[in-house]
Amino acid sequence: MIGYQLVSEAAPARWLVDRIGEFGVDVRSVTPAGFEAYARLFHPAYLDGREVSWREVAEASGHVAHPGMQWPSITDSLRFLSHDDQPGLWDQPPDEGTLPAGPAQRLSAELARHTSTPDTCWYAVWDGFGGVPVPAGAARFEIPGRGMFLLRGTVATIAEAPPLDGWEQRPNLWWPDDRAWCVATEIDFMTTYVGGSAAAIAGLLAVPGLEICEVDPGTGIGFDGDTLNPRPAR
C-alpha cells in the first residue's frame, strides 16, 4: 500500500465511531455528526474521457439538479447504476464506492488549507473489498453496517498515492488528526460527503472542477432521498 502506513491501534477512529449514526438514514449515517456544515460531492460521469456533471445529465433528461438528487432518478433507470450509457451524453457512469482521481486531488488540496495537521491524516478502508486484502496486524474498527481497517498518511496521500488495488479504489473515510473535517465515500454511493467548518465547506464550494453543494445533514441518502425527481423505472 504505497504511500499509506499501516497502524496497529484503532484509537484515532474512536471519535468517529461515537458520532456516526444508524446505517442508511441520512448524511450522519456516513459522515460524523457535529460538524458546522456538510457538503455532497457528485462523482463525475464521463464521455470520451471528459468529465460530465450530474447537472448536465439531469438537465438533458428534463430533471432537476439539487443536493438530494440520485443517479437513477436523473437517468430514469436503475440499469444505469453500473453499466450501459446514454449516447452522446455519457459513456461511463460515476465511480461507485471510491473517490475519482480528479476530484480527490481538488478536494484534498483545498481541505489541506483547513486543518492544523495536514501531515497526519487517518484513512479507513472497508474490509470487504475483494481486491484489497486486509494487512496482517491492521487496526480494525466497526461503524454501523461496515467493518473498517485503518491506515495513516498525509492529507495529500489520497491524491498522490496509487489506488489500493490497482483498480482506482481509494479509502472510504479520511480525516486529519485535529478532526477539523471528515470525508466519507460509502461503498454503495456515487457521491462523497464532507463534514467540516463553514469556512471549509465554503472553500470547497468555490473549487473549480468540483460538482459539490452544501447539504443539510438530515437529508436522506437512499434513492428516496431525491424528492424532486421521479422514482426510476426498473
Rank of each mutant, 00 (worst) to 15 (best):
Y4M: 07
L6S: 09
V7D: 00
S8K: 13
A10F: 06
R14N: 03
V17M: 12
V17D: 00
V17P: 00
D18F: 00
I20A: 04
G21H: 09
V30C: 06
V30P: 03
V30F: 11
T31R: 03
G34N: 10
E36H: 11
E36G: 05
A37T: 08
A37R: 15
L41A: 06
P44Q: 14
A45I: 06
D48T: 03
G49V: 07
G49A: 10
R50M: 07
E51G: 00
E51N: 09
V57I: 15
S61H: 10
G62M: 08
V64Q: 13
G68P: 01
W71T: 00
P72A: 07
P72K: 14
S77L: 13
L78N: 08
F80W: 11
D84I: 00
Q86E: 14
G88A: 07
L89A: 04
Q92T: 14
Q92E: 13
D95H: 15
D95Y: 08
L99K: 12
P100I: 09
A101S: 09
A101V: 11
P103M: 07
R106T: 11
L107N: 08
S108R: 15
A109K: 13
A109M: 07
E110M: 09
L111E: 05
A112E: 15
R113D: 10
T115M: 02
P118N: 11
P118C: 05
C121S: 06
V125Q: 07
W126E: 10
W126Y: 13
D127M: 04
D127I: 04
G130M: 11
P133L: 06
V134R: 07
F141Q: 12
E142L: 04
I143V: 15
P144L: 09
G145V: 03
M148W: 01
F149H: 07
L151E: 14
R152S: 09
T154V: 01
V155F: 00
V155Y: 01
V155I: 14
T157C: 06
E160L: 06
E160R: 13
P163D: 15
L164F: 05
D165A: 07
G166V: 13
G166H: 04
W167M: 15
E168M: 14
Q169F: 05
R170V: 00
N172K: 12
L173S: 01
W174T: 02
R179P: 00
A180V: 02
W181T: 03
C182N: 14
T185K: 12
F189Y: 10
F189M: 11
M190P: 02
T191F: 05
V194G: 01
G196C: 04
A198V: 07
A199W: 01
A199R: 10
I201H: 05
A206S: 12
A206F: 01
V207N: 04
V207D: 02
C213A: 15
V215Q: 11
V215I: 15
T219C: 12
G220S: 06
G225T: 09
G225N: 04
L228W: 02
N229A: 10
P232S: 11
P232N: 09
